[in-house]
Design a protein around this nucleic acid. Structure first.
Lengths: 131, 131
DNA sequence: AGAGAGCTTGACGTTAACGTAAATGTAACG
DNA sequence: CGTTACATTTACGTTAACGTCAAGCTCTCT
């Protein structure tokens, strides 16, 4: 039962629907840390977990740098109190940013919805008046 | 009562809180069409109306190219039903995107909040157990 | 006339997140 | 052993939306 539990770059690409360039880029940016078998990369379970979080973060609209910091927060040395305090502050800042972003998004959505409603009237006319 | 009804580039910047570079850039991209008094730009009422729409569009997350196309459509023939329909579709797509993004943002915020709560416990200990 | 202030047109710089191409290596297959 | 199929590093290219000089008009005030 010697399961390797690592994926080649191609297997990673197929699994996550990304290009090799992307994986190498993420490694260069220290978001992933595949081990090497000679010159080839082998992506561990940890890399896969991180990539999942990276892609989710991207869907949220975060930059890779934001994501890197958040990921670091997850695997920092949990025993150092000062470190944890820092991590905690970072997370709180991040949360504040996210909530601000959400608030702006809410406003934009409301505005756009108003525009669309107006547009709808202009296009289709006021049905009630015609019937 | 000879009101000029045009603004200098500086007046525009002050009014809309943008830089001169931005206004010149928008002109180069054919989003604005200020008239010239010698070499200087004079922004008309129309330019102001367009800039208002441009800035709103940006808040909605449209690219300048998207915005240019939408403005052009209004220009060409504001009464053309087909073109209005197209604008309407564009706006609806954008709204859907924004709502999806907000939904994901909500999830991310909730997750991050959970992390922070856990972090808080680890840092400060469980007060209830200590008292 | 000289000094600013403010405008103009280039034109190169910047950031993010990869794309893409070139040159090279290496492992397996027939 | 030669070819095919991927892998690797290096490095320049790309897009968006401006920023940031540089160098030169042109008013106006003194």
């Amino acid at each position: 039962m010697t399961t390797t539990d690592t994926l080649s770059i191609r297997e990673m690409c197929d699994t996550f629907d990304v290009t090799p360039r992307t994986l190498r880029f993420y490694e260069a940016k220290e978001l992933l840390f595949p081990i090497r078998e000679g010159t080839r990369r082998l992506f561990t379970r940890r890399d896969r977990a991180r990539l999942t979080l990276i892609l989710r973060g991207k869907r949220f609209g975060f930059s890779l740098e934001d994501i890197r910091q958040i990921l670091d927060m997850y695997d920092r040395d949990g025993s150092n109190e000062a470190q944890m305090q820092r991590t905690y502050e970072l997370a709180k800042d991040r949360l504040a940013q996210m909530e601000a972003q959400r608030a702006e998004l809410d406003v934009a959505i409301a505005e756009l919805r108003t525009e669309i409603d107006a547009s709808e009237h202009l296009i289709h006319g006021f049905r009630r008046a015609a019937e």
